[in-house]
Design a protein around this nucleic acid. Structure first.
Lengths: 126, 126
DNA sequence: CTGTATCCACAAGGATACTG
DNA sequence: CAGTATCCTTGTGGATACAG
């Protein structure tokens, strides 16, 4: 994979944090691990519908390098690998919660806006 | 620029929020506007060393579309445009604070790690 | 001063096949 | 099961020139 060098120098903490959670699936990976505690590769995969093996591996490796995720390999046949959050990962998830709240409110606003634009009367949301 | 359609459907709030702050300069733009309240294009530009006009415009337009930033145009010569945060933008900034704290701690951890790896003795940091 | 318009490089992401 | 390896497409960001 060579080394995807995560770069500084960061101007402020926001940068340093966003750098670590930017990536199409990282938010969801964090979320899954917070919810379930410990997950195997395939379980994680099922929790992230649409992710490719490559992307999942890549993101997990980066998050491991960044000290967010712990990777426990069991020398068995068939192989088993378990992923869980480190302390830093858990702290990050906690720090992400207000952001999640804001995001949920944003989703609500968006839906209202969408309805407004389309047709103010009724709109069956499937 | 055509339309960079910001896409849902979001699985959780984190997604919806990260979607809106992902972009090389968005974190900093938010930060600048929080600090200074209202800024003109050129002032913002000076606050983001290295940003190109194109990127700044692009990010500002997206953030405007996302309802984070207010764009006040004055019909003068020479032209003047002022940017400030909307309520949603301010709320987002507030929600970003814990993340910023986490990021600052991460920077500290990183520096320690860097020193450890390089040479545990002395290392003049320029 | 505040932007567009182009063109370009590179990295991120995706599809598919294969391996220990 | 848990990944690599490979190839390919797209998106993001940057340089430069020009315009209202």
């Amino acid at each position: 994979m060579s080394d995807t060098v995560r770069c500084g120098p960061y101007v402020c903490g926001i940068d340093a944090a966003l750098d670590v959670v930017s990536g199409k699936w990282k938010g969801l990976i964090l979320w899954e691990l917070v919810e379930h505690g410990t997950l195997r590769f395939a379980q994680l995969r099922r929790g992230l519908p649409g992710v490719s093996e490559k992307m999942l591996t890549q993101h997990l490796r980066e998050m491991e390098q960044d000290g967010l995720v712990r990777r426990q390999v069991y020398a068995e046949v068939p192989p088993r690998v378990e992923y869980s959050l480190t302390e830093a990962g858990a702290a990050l998830s906690a720090a992400l919660e207000p952001l999640g709240d804001w995001g949920r409110e944003r989703i609500l606003r968006e839906e209202i806006a969408l309805v407004d634009h389309a047709d103010a009367s009724r709109m069956p949301r499937p």
